[in-house]
Amino acid sequence: MKQLNIGNTNWQTSAVALGIMRMEALSTEDAVKALETSVDSGINYIDSADIYGMGHSEEVFGKALKESSISRDKLYIQSKGGIIVDPNRSHGSFVFGKRYDFSKQHLIDTVDGILKRMQVDYLDSFLLHRPDPLMEPEEVAEAFDELQASGKVRHFGVSNFNPQQFMLVQEAVDQRLLINQLQFSIMHTGMIDFGMHTNMQDARSVNHDGGLLEFSRRYGVTVQTWSPFQYGMFAGTFINNDKFPELNKKLQELADKYGVSKNGIATAWILRHPANMQVVIGTMNPEHIADSAKGADVKLTKQEWYDVYFAAGNDLP
């Protein structure tokens, strides 16, 4: 599988990562199958969050890793924290927060909980999950220092942060923030739309995120793309969805050309962008995991990339 360097470091990993949000619904046996299929497909990066399945996803992962043929040191394991769960609104894979909390003690306790549930001694990376407007960067810095000094976390990053929020943390911590995990897919292209519609008055000209993609490229930050096959906010997948006939026709055409699935082409479309992105797939279906992973080795032409963009309902000004 195609490899990439995280954050312009020498930390080299697979271009596709496995997100385990939905692992809470699996038996240990099925979770083992998902993990082993991922590794057999070239995926060596695992993404989690302490709130996934209200912690149960990490528990299932920990048991599955122990029962699998996979050695811990062959994986890059990442988790996220900073969201306090609202149990009254949360169910299964859909977990909602009642507040965000980046206090020093909460971040340290969060990592301890993650390590216990996943049955590992350290995380390769830990991300601040969603920006807390009440965060005190000095407390984040103290937490990061303690977590790194104790050997519990090797690298750090953020998720869903705009450039100013990113820099507010970066200027306070000694560690380099290597990652920003953001929603991006063929059907969620705001990060690139506005750049092509500069100084225009249509909906796509609106800069919703402060130039995140350009910022990430300039500062060598790896964008990890979540929901790569989804449209809306967990509204569903666009793959084989009758709502998107033109897009699926184009995806199938390219899938036939390159000998992969539509999921593989959707993966290849993201990876064709020169921004050093990593695709985080969330499926637990072994067949879909393998199909999606194959897309990492497909390099679309520039015209094919644009053709998929057009098939999704976009245009050029």
Rank of each mutant, 00 (worst) to 15 (best):
Y309R: 11
V298H: 06
D256R: 07
E146M: 06
Q78F: 10
M187G: 03
K152T: 12
E146T: 13
G232D: 11
K104W: 03
G295T: 13
M191L: 13
F161M: 01
S38W: 06
E287W: 08
S216R: 02
H197Q: 12
Y309E: 06
K294F: 04
I186P: 01
K294A: 14
M187P: 04
L128A: 02
P274W: 04
Y45V: 12
A31I: 07
A268E: 06
D193T: 13
I265Q: 02
I281T: 12
E171M: 13
D112N: 14
R218F: 13
G55H: 01
A49E: 08
F244G: 01
H91Y: 14
M21H: 02
E304T: 10
I83V: 11
L134D: 04
A25Q: 15
K250P: 03
E24G: 02
S79T: 10
G195T: 14
D145R: 12
P317Y: 10
D132G: 01
F126A: 07
K262T: 03
L75M: 13
Y45I: 06
P133E: 00
D202K: 06
H208S: 08
T198F: 14
F184D: 09
L177A: 05
E139G: 01
L300Q: 11
P228G: 08
A34H: 05
F184H: 14
I114R: 02
A268K: 10
N276K: 14
N8C: 09
E246K: 12
H106L: 00
R154P: 07
Q148H: 14
T267D: 02
H288D: 10
Q183G: 12
Q164V: 03
I186C: 07
Q165I: 00
L127C: 02
A141N: 00
N207D: 15
D297W: 00
A15I: 11
Q12R: 15
Q170R: 03
A143W: 05
T222Q: 00
K33F: 05
P286S: 06
R89N: 13
V39F: 12
D101G: 00
F238V: 02
S48C: 12
A64F: 08
H56Q: 15
S69I: 13
I43S: 02
Y122R: 14
N162G: 00
F238I: 06
Q252M: 07
W269Y: 10
